[in-house]
């Protein structure tokens, strides 16, 4: 799950292929993606993992790193 999320984030939001991200990279607070991108992440998670995460659970705080995303996804 982590690899797929990282791959999607790199392809979708990061135009620089040299940027390396891991599961603890601060994506939103680190300025790599903006909070508008969370909508695309919600759509991707639903399509890829079959889980619809309600919007109140997808926040700049709860989705700041891939590790946090996985924790939220596993709650549903």
């Amino acid at each position: 799950m982590e690899e797929k999320l990282i791959e999607f984030i790199k392809d979708e939001f990061l135009d620089d292929p040299d940027i390396v991200i891991d599961i603890d990279t601060k994506l939103i607070s680190g300025g790599m993606i903006d909070s508008f991108s969370l909508v695309s992440l919600q759509t991707f998670i639903e399509a890829e993992f079959g889980k619809k995460i309600p919007a109140p659970r997808i926040t700049a705080q709860s989705f700041d790193t891939v590790r946090q995303m996985v924790q939220v996804i596993n709650q549903f």
């Binding site: 909508v39 919600q42 759509t43 309600p54 919007a55 109140p56 997808i58």
Partner: peptide, 8 residues
């Protein structure tokens, strides 16, 4: 939560 996400 109730407009932006659903509209998107």
């Amino acid at each position: 939560d109730y407009l932006f996400f659903p509209l998107s």
